[in-house]
Amino acid sequence: MQSREMALFIQDGVLLPNGRLEFKVVLPDQLALVASVFKGEYGIAFAAQKNSGNLPCYRTITECRIIDFNQLEDDSLSIVLEGVQRLKVLSAAKLRNQMWIARTLVCPNWRHEPIAGEFEIISAALEQFYEVNPDLYELYSQVYLQDASWVSQRWLEVLPMYNCDKLRLVEQPNCHKTMDFVLQLLKSHVGL
């Protein structure tokens, strides 16, 4: 399997395949990263920030693409990233412009699976979450509330959990443990 170099967009959060998040780009290294991506020098990968160890991020990251950008009222740049493919970081280095570049390998994305039975509550709860958070919902042209993988990954992006706990679930071979986790969480909070 061939490795690829990716520029790392490191944030305190998780973006997974088919997910979308909007970010304000203000730091010089972030602007350099966006410029290098638009110039075609590097692909971009979203990485969850890690505060210890040799790397600035966890080893499981997501290749993304910039699907939209806007100049904000304060003249800063806003970009919308869409997750494409899970990757594993083999090594990383910081360039002189403070941008991180990683050598990566492709990891399999979770397969699409239908939601059935008691797990339908997870989909319904995500739909309600988007109604309460329209800024997140508006990022999507289409939602896939009948796909267990899509729904469970969106939950991992928005749940207030430590990145290390989220990534333990992301590194599973499928969405089943995440679905179980979110179902138990919902049951404990609404008394089902």
Score class of each variant (00 low, 15 high):
residue 6 M to R: 11
residue 7 A to L: 09
residue 8 L to R: 03
residue 8 L to S: 03
residue 9 F to E: 06
residue 10 I to N: 09
residue 14 V to Y: 03
residue 14 V to H: 10
residue 18 N to R: 09
residue 27 L to H: 05
residue 28 P to Y: 11
residue 30 Q to T: 10
residue 30 Q to Y: 05
residue 38 F to W: 10
residue 39 K to T: 02
residue 41 E to C: 14
residue 43 G to W: 04
residue 45 A to W: 00
residue 49 Q to N: 01
residue 52 S to R: 12
residue 52 S to H: 03
residue 55 L to G: 01
residue 56 P to K: 05
residue 60 T to K: 05
residue 60 T to G: 00
residue 62 T to G: 05
residue 67 I to H: 06
residue 68 D to G: 08
residue 72 L to T: 11
residue 72 L to M: 15
residue 73 E to T: 15
residue 76 S to F: 05
residue 77 L to K: 13
residue 78 S to E: 13
residue 80 V to F: 01
residue 80 V to W: 00
residue 83 G to I: 08
residue 84 V to P: 10
residue 86 R to P: 00
residue 86 R to H: 08
residue 86 R to V: 01
residue 90 L to Q: 07
residue 91 S to T: 03
residue 93 A to S: 03
residue 94 K to G: 04
residue 103 R to N: 11
residue 104 T to L: 01
residue 107 C to M: 09
residue 109 N to L: 01
residue 110 W to I: 06
residue 111 R to Q: 04
residue 113 E to K: 15
residue 114 P to Q: 07
residue 116 A to P: 00
residue 118 E to R: 15
residue 120 E to C: 10
residue 121 I to R: 14
residue 122 I to S: 12
residue 126 L to W: 08
residue 129 F to W: 13
residue 133 N to W: 02
residue 146 Q to L: 10
residue 147 D to C: 09
residue 153 Q to P: 14
residue 153 Q to N: 14
residue 162 Y to N: 04
residue 163 N to P: 00
residue 165 D to C: 05
residue 165 D to S: 09
residue 168 R to G: 03
residue 169 L to F: 10
residue 172 Q to K: 15
residue 172 Q to V: 03
residue 175 C to R: 15
residue 177 K to M: 08
residue 177 K to V: 08
residue 179 M to Q: 06
residue 179 M to D: 04
residue 189 H to Y: 12
